[in-house]
Amino acid sequence: MAKLHVETTINGESTEILVDPQQSLLETLRDGLMLTGAKEGCNDGNCGACTVIMDGRTVNSCLVLGAEAQDADITTIEGLATPRGLHPLQQAFLENAALQCGICTPGFLISSKSLLDSNPNPSEEEVRFWLAGNLCRCTGYDKIVRAVLDAAKEMKAGN
């Protein structure tokens, strides 16, 4: 089948890509654009390792078609840090040792960013609820939740 021409914005840069209709956004990012920060853990929406932000909302990129990225604004883990340095969440994850194997980390960081974008001052319960779609098998979530709460504090102080 013919490839589709898709124009989209990824991490602030407008991008043109050719996708097969059956290609997921996750495959498009990883195999087509070599943005391998989003990971595949399940390919059915249950682990959150593939999470990206699309038009301001987190989505599981394994359940979005590459074709659906047309005209969308997408942020991946590769777009979180700036030339000025790491995002406060990234820094907080490092300082709190909130990653062990690290495979879930990009998904958690992206989900956490979207949480703090909409709720800069979340409670522990709110963090746990928001991140429930992201599985981590290594950490028991303790240090992840602390890192997000710390980053929220840090970002408030920085503002």
């Binding site: 943005l35 391998t36 920060g37 989003a38 990971k39 991946t76 883990i77 590769e78 979180l80 840090a81 790491l86 990234q90 994850f93 490092l94 990653l99 690290g102 495979i103 980390t105 990009p106 960081l109």
Partner: peptide, 11 residues
């Protein structure tokens, strides 16, 4: 750490 929080680490 930096490679793993920026998505650069190669799995």
């Amino acid at each position: 750490g930096v490679d793993k929080v920026t998505g650069r680490a190669i799995y």
